[in-house]
């Protein structure tokens, strides 16, 4: 199974090679494939990820997967990306969009770049969509991991920029509800004064490592957002449409699961 995953990612997923085995953002498919292989047990056995609706991920063309966000560190983002890598057909490499402070983090910035993560500047996202790539982003931004436990699965600080770009570049928006992540590694406190490397806060998790909650990922049908991308009302309405669809998916997924660990 592991070698199939490697072959799927390293050899069959489309990739814009700049001539040395990397794309312009630093993605290295072989490194990505090896990492996914090496962490297969986390996906399969620790979090036991169950996924439905991956057929909604468009096979080609620009697309944006928008998901809820929670937990001390972006484990949910990693599991979503691994799930897309494993289940999209034909295989597509999701380009996770990270906050601006990530490029300042030693080691992490380089590792993330090799795995396909891109800093969330407007020009970066625009270029990815122009190339017809699949983007994964979390419109809650850093507000998601900073949510108190009582607010789990309530979307916080929903940003609208993705909707504007989706309209402008004709990108399909695929909502993805991630259930299990927001109980896995709850944050008990935020240290706002510790702005190391520009991060808005330092999360203090309740447990040293994430709890082995079961992840359920539900992809919704792709939304085609239309209208005038320069009109703030149109963009806000489009972002709201995606938010409501994601909330509906989250409610369904929460109602369907039997317990946090099953």
């Amino acid at each position: 199974m592991a070698s199939q995953i490697f072959e799927r990612i390293a050899q069959h997923a489309p990739f814009h090679d700049e001539g040395h085995g990397f794309d312009v953002f630093g993605l290295e498919p072989h490194r990505l494939a090896r990492t996914v292989e090496a962490t297969a047990a986390v996906y399969e056995r620790y979090f036991r990820v169950a996924s439905t609706g991956a057929h909604h991920i468009p096979a080609t063309g620009p697309a944006i997967v928008v998901a809820n966000h929670g937990g001390a560190l972006p484990v949910d983002a990693a599991m979503l990306c691994v799930d897309i890598l494993r289940r999209s057909d034909p295989p597509r490499i999701p380009r996770a969009i990270a906050d601006h402070f990530v490029p300042r983090l030693p080691l992490v910035s380089t590792l993330f770049a090799r795995l396909g993560v891109v800093s969330g500047t407007r020009a970066n996202v625009r270029r990815l969509l122009e190339r017809g790539e699949l983007i994964a982003l979390w419109p809650e931004g850093v507000m998601g991991p900073g949510k108190p436990y009582r607010d789990r699965y309530r979307l916080a600080g929903w940003r609208v920029g993705f909707a504007e770009l989706a309209i402008r570049y004709g990108a399909a928006v695929v909502p993805a509800a991630i259930v299990g992540a927001e109980e896995s590694w709850p944050v008990v406190a935020k240290v706002s004064r510790a702005r190391a490397f520009g991060a808005p806060f330092l999360p203090i998790p309740a447990t040293p490592i994430p709890l082995p909650t079961r992840y359920h990922i539900h992809y919704g049908a792709p939304l085609r957002l239309g209208g005038d991308a320069d009109d703030p009302d149109v963009v806000a309405a489009a972002a709201g449409e995606a938010q409501r669809e994601l909330e509906r998916l989250l409610a369904e997924a929460l109602a369907a699961r039997r317990s946090v660990f099953r």
Partner: peptide
């Protein structure tokens, strides 16, 4: 760290 990887 806030500028794009690709500079136009």
């Amino acid at each position: 760290h806030t500028t794009s990887d690709l500079l136009d």
